[in-house]
């Protein structure tokens, strides 16, 4: 799966499942500041990723993820 395809799927999850405004979801968007996903919300996002891509994400892997782009790259490396 290409990076842009992963991004489109991630965007779809954010918009459809989490109710985030579509225009805010860009590769540069910061999860906490721009998308208002707090520490509880991150757990939801991870669950949604795991279900969508049929993968498992460890907490340690999230340490360096603070933007949509970093999340997309992490997912891309795992699928």
């Amino acid at each position: 799966m290409e990076t842009n395809e992963v991004f489109e799927k991630v965007k779809g999850l954010f918009v459809e499942d989490l109710g985030i405004d579509e225009s805010k979801v860009t590769m540069d968007a910061k999860l906490e500041e721009d998308l208002e996903i707090d520490s509880l919300g991150i757990v939801e996002v991870v669950m949604a990723f795991e279900d969508e891509f049929d993968i498992e994400i460890d907490d340690e892997e999230l340490a360096d993820v603070s933007t949509v782009g970093q999340a997309v790259n992490l997912l891309h490396s795992k699928i």
Binding site: L18, G19, I20, D21, E36, L40, G41
Partner: peptide, 12 residues
């Protein structure tokens, strides 16, 4: 509720 407060807030 989605209409009233926005889905992102309502679903929490």
């Amino acid at each position: 509720a989605n209409e009233y407060m926005g889905k992102q807030h309502a679903r929490k």
